[in-house]
Every structure is written in C-alpha cells, then in structure tokens.
Amino acid sequence: MPKVTIDGKEIEVPKGTTILQAARMLGPDVAPPAMCYYSKLSKSGGYCRTCIVRVTKMNSQNPNPMPKPVASCRTEVMDGMEVVNYTSEQVLTDRKGVVEFLLINHPLDCPVCDQAGECHLQDLGYENGSEKTRYDFERRTYDMIDIGKNIKLHMNRCILCYRCVNTCEQLTDGRVHGVLNRGDVAEISTFIEKAIDNEFSGNVIDVCPVGALTDRTFRFKSRVWFTKPVDAHRDCKKCSGKVRLWFKGAEVLRVTARKDQWGEVEDWICNECRFDKKNVSDWELEGPSRISHHSVISQGHYELAKLKLDTGRQLKNLKEGKQKSTAKK
C-alpha cells in the first residue's frame, strides 16, 4: 500500500486513494476544502479547484515536484509522494485566488439566503477570502426560473460544481439533465426543472454547496442557526428514513439528510421524508445531532466544535517563521 506524506504527516492508504481522501483520513487539520468533489458521487470533482495542493515529491522513484498545483480530489497518491497543503504559503495563495474567482460573480446575498450559516462558500470565503472585493463590475445574473413547489433555484448563486447534475444522473434512471451554454454563462436550470419529478430530486438541495438550490418549504422560515437539529428516523419504503429534523420550538421547520463531518450526505433521503413529513409524530427522535466543526450552528448551542484555524492566521504564522499547525484542542 502506498505511503503518502501530507503537510508532514505520513499515512498508508489503499492503492487508488486520492490525495484528498488520504488527507481526510489524516483529519480536518490536513484535509483541503472541496466545493465540487463529493465522495458519494462518482465522477465528481476536479472543477472548482479549491482543493488544489502542491506535490513536492512525485514518488519514491521520482523525487521531482509536479510543476503545477494539482486538484487533490482527482490525483491519486503514489508511494513516497509528498504533498503540501496548509504548510505551503504558495498553496494558500493559489487557493485564495480560486476563492476570489468563485466569489466575483456570486451575489453575496447571504442576508436573504437560506443557506447562510451552513454554506460552504461562506466557510471558504471566511477561511480563504479577502475582506474586500476587487471586482467592480456588474455581477452575472440569470432569469429566475420556477422549478416547482419544493425546490427553489437561484442560478445567480450557483458556482457550477456539477454536484446536482451528478446527483440527478446517478440517483435516477436515465439522464434528464446537464449543463446548458458554455463558459461563464453556462447554467443548469432548465434541466433541473425536468428532473424534479423524481422521488429523490430533493437531494440536490443537500449536495448544493451554496444557496443555489434550497428547500422551498423552509423558505424564509428561520435562519438555520436559530433551529435545533435532531436526528430522527421513520420506516420508509423508499429510503433509509434516517434524517435530521430542524426544530424551532416544538415545530419541525425542515427535514434534511444527515451529513458527515465533511458536510456530505450520509444516506440519500426521499422527497416524501423531506417535504411531506413535518409532524413530530411522523418520526422517532434519536437525540441532538452532532454538528460539524465548521458550522455556526454549533456555536453556543451544543458542543464547542473544533474549529479549523483560519488561513489568515496560518499564513501569518508561516511568515513569522513558526512551525506549521498550531491547532489547539
């Protein structure tokens, strides 16, 4: 089994493991952020470029570095490979550039966006972004398209990660959607519209890293950090029935799939569980959910989640010549 060293930490992984997967095995201090890669979807990743890292040593036979940064989600490890992520100023600068690109045409309408508080682009911007934008042109806008009563599409917020495209393709029989147009006017809308009849289409809400696809039944009901997540389950013929209920007082405002520490869905859930079962009596409650480290939802509510250090501080440490990772427990 190949051994790879990432940010000075060595790990042995099965052949075929990507750098990103190996980094996740090492933990959140090492794992790069990912906006398009989704471990539950095949063929995902490679597009957003936020997970880029630098390979400083190719493998045990070839000590040369790779000339360009690589997408860690799509690059398989080789035995003896050495990779830098948070310990490299160059990588952090590269990533900052990518984050800026993702943000220039994003509307930054977080105050009215239901995703705020659990948005991966917010986290990414917080950790790697600048305080001010250098982009002083009109932002790209799309015409609003109604895609039905359950899912709200805001194409303006989309970062074209292709996760929803892959989800629909992989959870439904036969392909009914994809991407229209090209370049920076590419869009997914028309296709989502047609895929919406499928019983699992609601999962596109959970995989969307931004607020482009949100739950219409939850629209403007509450900020997510005012709601309490509770794990629950029910007997469902279509899916596992394992969900997360989001309470405000005694009322269930929203049902989502459970997500792991990387913000990925654990089990796909069906539209019936998601949209039609909003009574507590529909569910057997299991207890408060563990909320992932990066979420503001965990702030003050449940456990004090281990927060990843923001890049600004890491960069400063590096400049001051301090050794890497000063992560405090």
Partner: peptide, 21 residues
C-alpha cells in the same frame, strides 16, 4: 478566450471574463 472558455473549472470560467472586462 472568454468566449471560448468551456466553463468547467472556476479560474478560467471566471478569470477570463474578468480580464476581458
């Protein structure tokens, strides 16, 4: 290049348009 960018990856999709503007 802005016109011909396929739009898959973010640096090219967003960056070429920004440079053109």
């Amino acid at each position: 290049y802005h016109h011909e960018s396929c739009g898959q990856c973010s640096p090219c999709r967003e960056g070429t348009g920004w440079m053109e503007k």
